[in-house]
């Protein structure tokens, strides 16, 4: 593994224009900061996009979980291009489908319902992090 750390990489999309993107980002932050700080970390997706060797080194051969806000799956595609081992692709749209009718907020700010989606998705991601750590 060329990655400098053995932590599982949890990488959200940039999610600029849509609430789904903010949910992806907040979920990743919750996992790395609160739920699994010792077992998971993130890598800035924009840095991967630059294609720098240092950015690739961070991800090449590392176990990665991606969180994408839309069907373009930018996080998953960029992680694969950078040589990360994509263990699971989470799609925020799937959790939205499970909760039809919720009003999650905007690309800038989440509502209480939006935060509930983040908390729920973060628990799912955490489960995967724990499983991956056990595999090592």
């Amino acid at each position: 593994m060329s990655s400098m750390s053995n932590k599982v990489k949890v990488i959200p999309c940039s999610g600029m224009g849509k609430v789904q993107g903010l949910v992806a980002r907040e979920t990743a932050l919750k996992v790395i900061s609160e739920l699994c700080p010792n077992d998971a970390e993130t890598v800035c997706l924009a840095y991967l996009v630059t294609g720098d060797d240092e950015a690739k080194d961070k991800i090449e051969g590392a176990s990665c979980l991606t969180l994408d806000g839309c069907a373009k799956l930018c996080a998953a595609k960029n992680v694969e291009l950078a040589g990360g081992i994509l263990k699971k692709k989470f799609r925020v749209v799937d959790i939205f489908r499970e909760h039809k009718g919720v009003k999650p907020g905007s690309a800038t700010m989440l509502t209480e319902e939006g935060w509930q989606l983040v908390d729920e998705l973060a628990e799912k991601v955490k489960k995967n992090v724990v499983e991956l750590v056990r595999e090592v």
Partner: peptide
Amino acid sequence: SRLATLKMLNEIRPDETVTICLPLFLAG
């Protein structure tokens, strides 16, 4: 950076500002 860009996009100059998710340069 992200929040300020969104403020520009949604509040300050909504009709004249466009943005793109940076990773779309590779994934799009």
